[in-house]
Design a binder for these strands. Structure first.
Lengths: 250, 250
DNA sequence: CGTATAGTTGATTTGGCTCAACATCGGTGG
DNA sequence: CCACCGATGTTGAGCCAAATCAACTATACG
């Protein structure tokens, strides 16, 4: 049908330099949870983090592993997943540069309650949860920033619980596309492009449906001119129409 | 059929004294997020909180109201709800003594993202989010305690998202009963009693189903001897069988 | 080019929703 | 203390959105 359907997604543009100790300072400085901290503190903190690369698809930790580290996305993207024993995965969140995951728990006994997987090639900063707590004790402002971030995530999780409880699959997909666009959208010639690799299965795992149903609904949206989409990418041409889908249902 | 089906739930046993400035000190002292704080700090903090009573069913704040306060359950129970525009409500969480809700946000512009409603007669402590932040700045330990609580809630929310995405209604109800029993269960002559008023509609709103379906599944559980239940109460006689329901589905 | 991965589309089945009628409990007031 | 009535819970019948099963096509990548 169409030949002009090559991915409009930027090439990863990922370079190992993103993880060098030098540029780490810049990354840490811009982290939401070190916002407004004195520079000296950042330098001190930087010394404690360790760095590691992951290839796209590689697992950073598994659900059930002993949980001891806090991780920060320095570059690239990370998926947080939960597995069900029927093999059906649920995609809880997609994290981009500057977001944290892992555990803050210093007590030894806990396990990771989810799996973290590199969504793209990425660079992860790690710190033991114990050391991180020392930082939090020293810099109350950092703790408060964390509280703000956790509160936001909790609100989002509550919203998703509502979606999953009472909205149709069509509405959940519309909502998720808008949410992703708000987070990683960039205006391109194809429209408001969601700037990360996003398959039908990903979308299904984020909305509690199957890839077949996701595919059907995406086809329908494209036919209606609301989105443009290809392999692993989606761009929204008519956000208003998606918004309208959420309101309906009276 | 049976006459002996009066509620085994304790009478609210709620007295206005729970809110007196005197006993508030004790309550604050036992709050998870003031754990390990010096007594002097508790006294100081106590002076800042304001108290209010609510009757069962009364709304503490509505989804969409300007959000400015942090609330603490001093006595009784509180429901956190989200409304959908089709009238279908979703019960996000049930909070008991010592748990907090509301907002920590000091920026003026935000709105409550959920509705808080008195589940029983209850007594609520309130503080402006700005004042609470001052406390957090002064006592880093309190901030860290809050972080722990928020992390736990986020994990629970993620678990619920998984449940809603991939588990059957039967499994969701089994899981929810076990969760409630862990939280407010007490061993009685009827079994492991869930010690709060819990209707079929409540259960439905917590598991993303309808009261009819919840009723059917509860009847089935009772027929199987897994639970005993009546108006607004449930007790679990065979927790193992509920656990087993969660594992299955291979 | 050829192959593996991603996506599409149709046919069929089904879990749970909807609508509906009824049963039961427990608090209230006569 | 009992009769009443609204709130709560139960149960059945029919229907529908979405899952499942299945066959197929299109695309990127080496």
């Amino acid at each position: 049908m169409q030949k002009h359907r090559n991915t409009p997604l930027e090439k990863p543009a990922f370079n190992a330099e993103s993880c060098s100790t030098d540029s780490r300072l810049n990354i840490l400085h811009d982290l939401p949870f070190f916002k407004n901290l004195p520079d000296a503190a950042i330098v001190e903190i930087n010394a404690i983090f360790r760095t590691r690369h992951y290839q796209s698809g590689e697992v950073i930790y598994f659900n059930g592993d002993p949980a001891s580290r806090l991780c920060v996305v320095a570059a690239g993207g990370v998926k947080l997943l939960k597995h069900n024993n029927d093999g059906h995965d649920v995609l809880i969140d997609i994290l981009k540069q500057g977001e944290f995951f892992g555990t803050l728990d210093i007590l030894g006994g806990t396990l990771y309650q989810e799996t973290a997987e590199a969504q793209t090639n990425c660079c992860i900063l790690k710190i033991s949860s114990g050391q991180f707590r020392t930082i939090l004790n020293t810099y109350p402002l950092a703790a408060i920033n964390i509280i703000d971030i956790l509160s936001d995530r909790l609100k989002s999780a509550y919203e998703m619980m509502k979606q999953l409880s009472v909205q149709s699959v069509e509405q959940r997909i519309a909502f998720t596309l808008l949410k992703l666009a708000r987070k990683v959208g960039s205006q391109k010639n194809v429209g408001l492009l969601i700037d990360l690799p996003l398959s039908r299965s990903d979308l299904a795992a984020m909305t509690g449906t199957t890839s077949e149903t996701a595919s059907r609904i995406m086809s329908q949206f494209q036919k209606q001119g609301i989105i443009k989409t290809g392999r692993q990418w989606v761009s929204i041409t008519e956000p208003d129409k998606l918004e309208k889908l959420l309101e309906s249902d009276l």
